[in-house]
Design a protein around this nucleic acid. Sequence first.
RNA 1: GCGGGUGUAGCUCAGUUGGUUAGAGCGCCAGUUUGUGGUAUUGGAUGUCGCCGGUUCAAAUCCGGUCACUCGCCCCA
Length: 424
Amino acid sequence: MKPMQPVRGTADLMPRQKSQMNIVLEKASLIASRYGFQDMETPIFEFTEVFSRPLGESSDVVAKETYSFEDRGGSSLTLRPEGTASVMRALISNGLTQSLPQKFFYAGPMFRYERPQKGRMRQFHQIGCEYIGSFNPLADAEVIGCAAQFLSELGVLHSCRLHLNSLGDGESRDTDRAALVAFLPHYKNELSSDSQRRLNENPLRILDSKADEDREILKNAPQLLAFLTTQAQQHFEQVTNALDKAGINWQLDINLVRGLDYYSHTAFEFITDELGSQGTVLGGGRYDGLSAMLGGPDIGAVGFAAGVERLALLIEQKQEFTYDIAVVITDDNAASDGFALAQNLRLQGLKTDIPMAPQLGKKLKRASLIGCKLSFIIGENEIKSDTIQVKVMTTGEQKQMEISQALSFAEKFLKHGLEGNLSE
RNA sequence: GCGGGUGUAGCUCAGUUGGUUAGAGCGCCAGUUUGUGGUAUUGGAUGUCGCCGGUUCAAAUCCGGUCACUCGCCCCA
């Protein structure tokens, strides 16, 4: 074993980064609750079939990105590469198909074996909302609305564009695929090598190829929207009408398709151009087929997932950890009194530290280093007179006070900042 | 899985066409200040130059390999 370094694609979430992510997490949970999405959590691994069936054996996620292993009992298990399949499995396992609809919010780590890049890790974190048990287009709109408000309140919506497309229902998909399969082989030799491979595996995904030669050919290719059934068209229209009426901006992206097999109808992504090629910051869509693929009843569902690390990279706000008060103990004889004082302050709800250093000067230095606004200095002299020295760190002002007096001063000072007056 | 870039002190980075004891800023430690921090000033410590091998009288510098990070492709959050 050589390096004391984390496994490739994993990262320690040190306080600075973790606090940044907490902003995202807390905001997501808050906004989701306004839409009725209730917090829940599933295990981070499942039987492999939970993912391999619904996501599609040929999908990149299953084909080459999963962490799968056999446990000691011989079961094939997989670390979850995404949240939706697990949530649906949990709904079925818990017998909730009888009490629909259900609206869930979840957050937690996901695992994909990929080449790491900025905003792309092998262990990363997602938050997501799933609205399960409705075929109504308003459910799509509600999910998108929730996503938009979430991004907006994080302050990142302005730098994102909402891309929208309809994949249609099963019937639309079949006719479209047939048309595409009939069209593309004429150009087989001109397609990029990736797309030639996809021709057999998943022709729909050729649509969002970025290779120039493919784009040229696709200009004349049959388009998804043209093959939507009447019902699928109506569904899409009702979604977009609802978004328009609510003032949520979107743009049609006819090449937006989803890599996972269970998607149908609405597909959407919020894309930013501030993160290089990892621009998709939140994505989702309708997945009416998923429940049946897992052996459940025919249930309509729609949801989204967002990458916590990617969002954390976008938000500017930083929270520095600061203390309110340092209890500075000048000599060992005052140790227990100082400790009791600090403990009391913490019971009052004040963030308090006891600087540990060999000399008084070092203790005060430590106090200002970690951002204490006040120092309460206590030593033998103070104990004799039942007082402490209160020092305002920004100005250096200092005054001897009784402890109760010091407490009420601290309360006032921390609330009103510099208006607190020492000479009062 | 495929391509490009980078790896020098805790951090950000200099380091000439290969040349002797490898540098700066910030940070850290200590003194000026034995019951008073922040500012100032003086001094100090710190490196297997990512790792392994090769070329050479001589390698941080050139070559090969390897590991890590990073940017792109693929795909996605």
